[in-house]
Design a protein around this nucleic acid. Structure first.
Lengths: 347, 347
DNA sequence: GGAGGAATTTGAATCGGTTCATTGAATCGG
DNA sequence: CCGATTCAATGAACCGATTCAAATTCCTCC
């Protein structure tokens, strides 16, 4: 009771399956008379061209690349940073005529999803993704690129100057005269968010978090300070959830004059929290983000932040998948963008 | 020189291919002794489990649904409305453990892409997508759901009360006392944007545009006005591009006291344009959007708009694909959300 | 009329697994 | 000790196409 297949059409038209296949794939090499006979048969049987499933097996190429993101696929459409990366990937896929498949890593069945995803290559975007997932993806032996995470020798990755960027951010505050600076960290593990401690962040599962923290530390050291002196708070990365927590943090540390955020979403949440507490930014509290997402330029006041080329990151990663060169690591530059959330500390 | 396949592993382990298959798919039914022998062989040959390509053909299910969006895949990560819909779809896919594939309709090869996409079903999101594409997708004979567009009898679709929503928007302005109202329209065709005329919009390729226009007209009629009296402007839907055009439009029609926008992005662009021209909103110009995207609540001032359940729209569409019921049409409700971009007209 | 060559067509092999009806062996109850 | 079950393993059929060497047909031209 299923639909007709190519061989049915061939039989109905009285030709071999090879010829029928040609009618659909290289119509120019089959005689007009035969072609129209086959086409008529196809129409009669309600056959609309070869099933991609069959072709795939033979051809071996899916013509799509898979992006494994956080455990919640919807994040790819919500988180500003991820969206920027995705746009870069999407642009390159469009250019190559390839599809884009999102594969989630929902705990329950991440293994299965990754093992069975129909893709020609994987881009693993680190944020919230852990090593087990990466290993799984690598086992597929498909072209593989890691974002923001060096996945061991022999695999390609695209990184940014996390440490330098963080140092830039901290140095900016220090040069303005700040000495009591707090740090807002992204989730250090898949889960996250318990009574934060410096050690926990330093031991984060994510390289970029460790690097950014180290960058902060580096700049602090230049001014005779240490990370131990900087109160640190680990957050979810979800504005609604985070703002109140930051509020409490500010209440607990009234001496802070500035906050270093490991991501713009955290800085923007901090901006809300500060306003909610009646603090003026930057007069009472300076804020530096990281990423330079679109929203950073449009907040009130606009956010001072470290710009990273997220869009290009996506593009580069996709290109590495398509171009299939030997494994290499690409390091993208960052820069400080001074807007209006930073100023000299209050007296 | 290619990787080992299941039958190689089976041979190496001295078992039948069927047994080898079971080791990977239903390990519990194969004896421990044989299982470990097969696993050892697999490891020795560097075999990491069955290739999904092979499985697919047999199983027939890809376990992913395809979303055909505009010609630019990156739009799915940029446009606020589309993102909301995508999030709804993504959520449902996650819940069902299915993948999500974006298939673009880039002019050059849209046909090929749609015909060969490896998916179990299609959701076609109308905005900027034309009929040819829809027809192509339907030919695949896969579960199919159209968004914002009734694709003929026998196909499922999810719609919203476009006409009623538009009428609500217009009525709101009229009741505030506005009489000189301009209309901002979305692209009426794949291309768009020429010297706009009412007729062109009324003949739009997209049902939801025609309906929204009709809704405006309906409300105008209640107050003794007609669409002919309302200046109309067709836009791209790209803030940067649109704002200046709206500026010129406002300059050309200085008597307008309000603007009805068919989408929030247009209204937000209008907000920028108004500010750029030194017009105060809502004192000098009232604005009503459509969609109620996240940004609408956060603009300055917050946008009065027609809320539509875009997230649920995505969810519903995905659910229809998965649940495979008979074709049906779901109509989702809209409502007026009054914020701060509307007020009585200036005297 | 027939050789030579071009244009078509054929059909079997292949892609990499999964499934299921059978078969063979081991276990169990009486 | 025998027949009835249960448990494992087998291997051929199948999923739906593409490919390519070989066979056939059709022309052209001497």
């Amino acid at each position: 009771m299923k639909g007709a297949k190519l061989s049915d059409v061939a039989k109905a038209a009285g030709v071999s399956s090879g010829t029928a296949s040609n009618v659909f794939n290289r119509p120019e090499i089959v005689s007009p008379e035969v072609r129209s006979r086959v086409e008529a048969a196809a129409r009669r049987l309600g056959y609309n061209g070869p099933d991609p499933k069959g072709r795939l097996l033979r051809a071996g190429k899916v013509n799509a690349i898979g992006v494994v993101t956080s455990d919640d696929t919807a994040d790819a459409f919500r988180d500003p940073y991820t969206r920027l990366v995705m746009r870069g990937i999407a642009k390159e896929c469009d250019a190559r005529g390839a599809g884009l498949a999102l594969v989630s890593t929902k705990q329950s069945e991440s293994a299965w999803r990754i093992q069975t995803a129909l893709v020609d290559g994987f881009i693993v975007s680190c944020y919230k993704v852990d090593d087990a997932v990466v290993a799984l993806a690598q086992e597929r032996k498909l072209p593989f690129v890691a974002l923001d995470l060096d996945a061991g020798p022999g695999t390609s990755s695209v990184l940014i100057e996390d440490r330098r960027g963080a140092a830039l951010a901290a140095r900016h505050l220090l040069e303005l005269g700040h000495r009591r600076i707090g740090i807002l960290a992204l989730p250090t593990k898949g889960d996250c968010h318990s009574p934060t401690g410096l050690g926990r962040v330093q031991a984060s599962a994510f390289r970029f978090i460790r690097d950014r923290l180290a960058g902060y530390g580096e700049a602090l050291a230049e001014h005779g300070l240490t990370l131990e002196q900087a109160p640190i708070l680990e957050l979810h990365g979800d504005a609604e959830h985070d703002a109140p927590v930051i509020g409490e943090f500010l209440a607990a540390h009234p001496d802070l004059t500035a906050l270093l955020a490991m991501a713009d979403i955290l800085a923007l949440a901090a901006l809300d929290a500060a306003h909610a507490r009646g603090l003026r930014v930057p007069e009472d509290l300076s804020l530096v983000g990281f990423d330079d997402v679109a929203e950073a330029a449009e907040s009130d006041p606009p956010l001072t932040t470290i710009a990273q080329p997220a869009f290009e990151k996506g593009e580069t990663a996709a290109r590495m998948i398509f171009d299939q060169g030997p494994p290499r690591t690409e390091l993208l530059p960052v820069k400080l963008v001074v807007r209006e959330t930073t100023a000299a500390p209050r007296k």
